[in-house]
Design a protein around this nucleic acid. Structure first.
Lengths: 349, 349
DNA sequence: CTGAAAGCGCTAACAT
DNA sequence: ATGTTAGCGCTTTCAG
C-alpha cells in the first residue's frame, strides 16, 4: 500500500483546449490568438475569422485564472451584504447578478454581518482578496480609511445605501423616508406614534435607521409633538423582531395609536402583534412600513415604495463602468421614493 | 454580451507582498514558505513559526489566481438558482454562503433562468468555467449527459431538490409534500380542491411541481375524488402569479372550496385574491401552502414546513467534502417535512 | 500584421 | 528539512 498523502489528488485531468491548441490548429502564434479573440486591433480580418472559427470548434475558453494572473483583472465583482436572506438584500443581489452575468462577470456574494467581518473586508484578509475587481457594499458602513485602503489595493467600490462621498453611490434619502411615513400618520391625526427601529447597539454602524429616525423626529417636532423615547423600540429588520418590538409597545402603559416600522418585514411583525391582541388595524393601530415588499399588497400595508432590484442593476452598471473604463467619480444617485397608501393606516379612533 | 474590451488601463499597481518577499524576509526559499503557510509536513517548527510571523507582518496573502493556475483548484463554488430573489432561493443561498465563507471558499451566484442558461452551464461556456471547483444546482434539472460532462470537466456537483442518482443530493419527498397538504384538505371534508402549480410550459424541467401534483392527484384518487384539470392553474411560484391563478379559479363557474398552493408565496397571492372578492378564508376558501415562509405566521397560513437555510448549509458541506476530500458518492438526504396547521384551513361551509 | 519570449505568483516534483 | 526549477495558461512588450 502506498502511504496515505495529506496532499489532495490533483483534480481530474481537464483536457480543455488551451490557447496553444488553438494557435497550433490555426497555424499562428498564441499572441495572435489572444489578440484576435479579444477583439484587439492589428489583426488581419481573415486571420481573426479563422482563429474565431477554430476556437469555436475546439470549444476554447480562456482560463480565467491565467488571464487574471497576467492582467491583474478578474472579471468578477463581489457584493457584500449584512445578510443574504431578507427581501431587501436578496432583491439587490438579484439585480446585480443579472447585470453582471450579462456582461460576463461573476458575482461573488459575501455576508458581512459582524464587526470582525468588516475588519477583514477592510484589511483585505478575507477570501475576496484579489479574486474580484470591485465590491458593491450594500448598507455596509466602512470608515473612510477602510474604503481608501481598499481602493489602494486596486478594488473598485460602489455603495448602495447612504452616500460616502468617496465612491459612486446609489440610494434614497432616508431622512425623507422617515418624514414621509411619519407625516402621513401625523396628517391622519395621530399624536402617539411608535417607531420600530433597527438594532439597539448596531454592530454595523448601520446609518439608515439613524436617518429615518431623524426624519421621524423632525416631523414630530414640527407638529408640536414631543418625541418620546419610550415609543422607540428595536426590531432588527426582521418579522420576528418587529413582532417582539411592537408587542412590547402594545403591552406598555400608554401604547401608541400608530407605528412607523422602518421595513415592511418589521411592519408584518407589527400586524401580527396587533392581531394577536385582538386589536383592529388600522382602527386601533395604524401601521406604515418601508420597501413595498412583494407581500405588502397582500397584507394591504401602507408603505414607502422603492425599487430595489432596479437599484441593484444600476449599482452593478456603475461598478462595471468603473472596472472597464476606469471612471471613478464619486457620483451619487438618489432614487425617488413614494408613499403607497393602503389599508393599514387611518385616523385614530 | 461581453463588455467592450478596448485595452483598459492596467489596474493601479498593487504593491502587495508576494511569496518571494516573504521568502526573502524569512531567509528561506519560496517552496518552504508555501509549505509552511499551507500547514504541510516536513517543515521545522521553528521555520514555520518564523515564516508565519513574517507573512503576518507583511500582510501576505497568496494570490488566488496564481494558486488556481498552479493547482487547478480555485477555492470557490458556484450556486446556480432559477431566480435569486424569492424566499426559498435566497434562504438556500444564505445557508450556502455562511458555510463557504467559514471555510474560506468564495460563493459565486448564478441565475439560471432560461433554457439557454442551462445549455451554457452544461456546455461550460458560461462565466463559471474554471472559476469554481464545483456547483450546487438548486432545483435546476440537467440531463444526465450534462451532469456527466460537467463532472468530466472536473466540476463537483451537488443538487438541492429532486434526486439525480449521479451526485450527492439533498431535498424533500415532494410527492409526500403534495400528499400531506392535500390529505389535510380532504380530511377537513373538501372535495373540490384547486391546485396552484408552477409554470405551464416549464422551461426548466422543474420536476418539483410534477411530484407535488402526483401527491395531490394520488390523494384525491384514493379518496374517490375525480381529478379535475380545470382546477389546476399555473402560479409561477410568485405572489403575483398565485394571485392571478386563484383569481381565475374563483371567477370560474364552479370554484373550489380549497386550494393547495405549491409555495407560500403563491398562497399569499391566493389569500389576496380571496379577500379581494370578499371571500372569507378559511370559511369560503381554505388555503394551504408550502415552505413556512417567514411571513406565513403573519398571514396565519397553514403550510408544509421545511428548513431551507439549514438545507443550504448542509448542501455546502457536502460540496466542500467532495472538493477537499474527493468523496464523490451519490448520497441522498431526504429532509423531514411537517404540516403546520394554522388558520387558513377549515372544513368547507 | 505577426511572432518570440518574458513574466504574472504560486505549487510540486525532484534534488540535496 | 529545505532549495531549485519547471511549469500552470495567458497577456504584453519588443522585434520584425
Amino acid at each position: 500500500m502506498n502511504v496515505e498523502m495529506t496532499t489532495q489528488p490533483r483534480p481530474t485531468r481537464n483536457d480543455r483546449a488551451t490557447i496553444e491548441d488553438v494557435a497550433a490548429a490555426a497555424g499562428v502564434s498564441v499572441a495572435t490568438v489572444s489578440r484576435a479573440l479579444r477583439g484587439l486591433p492589428n489583426v488581419a480580418n481573415s486571420t481573426r475569422q479563422r482563429v474565431e472559427a477554430i476556437a469555436e470548434e475546439l470549444a476554447y475558453r480562456p482560463d480565467p485564472a491565467a488571464s487574471r494572473l497576467a492582467t491583474g483583472r478578474s472579471q468578477a465583482i463581489a457584493v457584500a451584504v449584512p445578510v443574504l436572506n431578507g427581501w431587501y438584500f436578496s432583491n439587490v443581489v438579484a439585480g446585480i447578478e443579472a447585470v453582471c452575468t450579462e456582461s460576463g462577470f461573476d458575482t461573488v456574494v459575501l455576508g458581512v454581518s459582524s464587526e470582525a467581518d468588516r475588519e477583514r473586508l477592510a484589511a483585505g484578509t478575507d477570501s475576496i482578496h484579489r479574486r474580484v475587481d470591485g465590491v458593491i457594499l450594500v448598507d455596509i458602513a466602512l470608515r473612510a480609511a477602510a474604503l481608501e485602503s481598499m481602493t489602494e489595493r486596486g478594488l473598485k467600490i460602489v455603495t448602495v445605501g447612504p452616500q460616502t462621498g468617496l465612491c459612486p453611490s446609489i440610494g434614497i434619502d432616508d431622512v425623507e423616508v422617515g418624514r414621509m411615513a411619519t407625516s402621513h400618520l401625523v396628517e391622519l391625526g395621530h399624536r402617539r406614534i411608535g417607531l420600530v427601529n433597527g438594532q439597539p447597539e448596531d454592530p454595523l454602524d448601520f446609518v439608515v435607521p439613524l436617518r429615518r429616525t431623524e426624519g421621524y423626529e423632525g416631523v414630530l417636532t414640527e407638529a408640536g409633538i414631543t418625541v418620546d423615547p419610550a415609543l422607540q423600540v428595536s426590531g432588527n429588520f426582521s418579522i420576528a423582531g418587529g413582532y417582539e418590538a411592537v408587542s412590547e409597545l402594545l403591552d406598555s402603559a400608554d401604547p401608541p395609536t400608530a407605528v412607523f416600522a422602518m421595513s415592511d418585514e418589521m411592519a408584518f411583525g407589527a400586524i401580527q402583534a396587533a392581531r394577536e391582541r385582538g386589536l383592529d388595524v388600522p382602527g386601533d393601530l395604524s401601521i406604515v412600513g418601508v420597501d413595498d415588499h412583494d407581500a405588502a399588497v397582500v397584507l394591504d400595508l401602507t408603505t414607502v415604495h422603492q425599487d430595489i432590484a432596479d437599484r441593484g442593476a444600476r449599482a452593478a452598471r456603475l461598478m462595471l463602468t468603473q472596472v472597464t473604463r476606469g471612471d471613478n467619480r464619486a457620483t451619487r444617485i438618489d432614487d425617488p421614493i413614494r408613499l403607497v397608501i393602503r389599508g393599514t393606516t387611518a385616523p385614530p379612533r
